[in-house]
């Protein structure tokens, strides 16, 4: 790449810019359908109803309702990316280096691809059919009954009598994990495969225990990938809308759900506050993706050299 640049540099860097003309359709498309809509929202976020500049729209941050939606979204995304990340990491660990039987590895690789792409409404349906009030597993657990004292029947395993509720944040976390951990498996497996067997052997040969190997070698080497993958999971959950909508009917106020309601009927009572809400999401996503790109760069640099 550098070579090309150097070869063509003498006197005609303009020629280089002319070459960008072939990218015009692409950039026009992006400008129309990504940049323009975003700008509409951004400028709206900083304007009042009459079009004057204002920061007042961000006063929604004082509106506990809106603020809480941010907190819920961040919380759900964080917790599912950590749970999904840790779980996915162990699963990826199991399917690399021939640790689990071959058929299990095949099943897990295939299903990770499937589950990571399986979200939205059908996922919510699946969880309702399984763990909802009348769901299959709920019914199974409910049906385990014993004869208690005095001829009463005790059914101690009904999850709904122990505070479990699928149509809540807990249920949402359960459902999100279904696509979060497979995504972790898909993103972290290449990094795990990059751990050379010789490293663990060299480490053992030098007298380290297996936990010392993980602490001093494997985890430090994996760290950028692990962090990067977790950030990806965060973004994945943060932008999700359909599963939450279908699972809870919009009764859990995630930012995405709030925005949805704002589009439908201006629940905030001020369209520009809706823009500010959306703008905040983009800011948070930009930060996460920026971190992701930076870490990704670092990882690839390491692996390459």
């Amino acid at each position: 790449m550098k070579k090309t640049r150097n070869r063509k540099l003498p006197g005609n860097s303009q020629w280089q810019w002319k070459n960008l003309i072939g990218l015009l359709p692409f950039f026009l498309f992006i400008a129309f359908f990504l940049v323009m809509p975003s700008l509409t929202l951004f400028s709206g976020a900083f304007q009042d109803v009459d079009g004057h500049f204002t920061l007042a729209n961000f006063s929604f941050l004082q509106n506990t309702f809106a603020l809480k939606s941010y907190l819920t979204s961040v919380w759900v995304s964080l917790i599912t990316s950590v749970i999904g990340g840790v779980f996915g990491f162990f699963v990826a660990y199991a399917i690399t280096a021939e640790r689990a039987p071959r058929w299990m590895r095949n099943v897990l690789t295939t299903f990770s691809g499937l589950a990571a792409n399986f979200g939205g409404v059908p996922l919510a349906f699946a969880f309702i059919a399984t763990l909802g009030r009348t769901g299959f597993i709920t019914a199974l657990l409910k049906g385990i009954c014993f004869n208690g004292a005095g001829g009463t029947t005790i059914c101690p395993f009904n999850p709904y009598e122990h505070g479990f509720n699928l149509y809540s944040v807990t249920g949402l976390i359960l459902a999100y994990t279904y696509f979060q951990f497979p995504l972790m498996v898909l993103t972290i497996t290449p990094a795990l495969e990059g751990l050379k067997r010789e490293w663990s052997e060299a480490s053992a040969n030098l007298g380290s225990s297996s936990s010392q190997y993980w602490r001093y070698v494997a985890l430090p080497v994996l760290w950028p990938s692990l962090l990067g993958a977790t950030i990806l999971l965060f973004g994945n959950a943060f932008g999700a809308y359909a599963t939450a909508q279908a699972l809870t009917g919009g009764s859990i106020y995630l930012v995405t759900i709030m925005i949805g309601q704002q589009i439908r009927g201006d629940v905030l009572g001020n369209p520009n506050e809706g823009y500010a809400l959306a703008f905040g999401m983009v800011v948070i996503m930009s930060i996460t993706i920026f971190l992701y790109v930076m870490l990704q760069r670092k990882t690839t640099r390491w692996i390459k050299s």
Partner: peptide, 17 residues
């Protein structure tokens, strides 16, 4: 292996990156 006190050198160096 970690109790044997033998030094091993690998073809691929196996240095910790």
């Amino acid at each position: 292996p970690n109790k044997r006190n033998m030094g091993m050198v690998f073809q691929s160096y196996a240095l910790f990156p």
